[in-house]
């Protein structure tokens, strides 16, 4: 296995640009949503699933197949569990239902 120089250079390009894009995007995530953000990025980093599938499905040796099998299970747990839990959390974040309450409080305050 020898990764080509071309790929390494392209990979560095992609890594640097994705890093900057990530920085600028994630910087805008409010603190309110930091826990769901962690859960989401966890699910996203379970993209190792792609590598795990190749190692398992490629059937190189019995040894790598076993490692791949465990790796697919572990990353699949994160994909499924990660997306489900992020969604479950986000469902809880609700805006105020009735906007009349703060007005009532203000009226009280000014009186």
């Amino acid at each position: 296995m020898n990764v080509s120089v071309e790929f390494i250079m392209t990979g560095l390009f992609v890594f640097a640009l994705a890093g900057f894009l990530g920085f600028e995007t994630i910087r805008r995530v409010p603190r309110l949503l930091h826990t769901p953000l962690m859960a989401l990025t966890n699910a996203l980093s379970a993209i190792s699933l792609v590598g795990s599938i190749v190692v398992l499905g490629g059937q190189y040796t019995a040894y790598t197949t076993i490692l791949g099998f465990v790796a697919v299970i572990a990353s699949m747990i994160n994909v499924v569990g990660g997306f489900l839990i992020t969604d479950k959390m986000l469902k809880m974040f609700k805006p105020r239902e009735k906007p009349k309450k703060p007005e009532a409080a203000e009226a009280e305050a000014s009186s």
Partner: peptide, 23 residues
């Protein structure tokens, strides 16, 4: 992603790494 020559792994990994770094 570098080892497996897979850009998608690099992108997702960079995003996750950056998110953790910012936090």
């Amino acid at each position: 992603g570098f080892v497996l020559e897979n850009n998608l792994l690099i992108v997702a990994g960079a995003l996750d790494g950056m998110s953790g770094l910012i936090l």
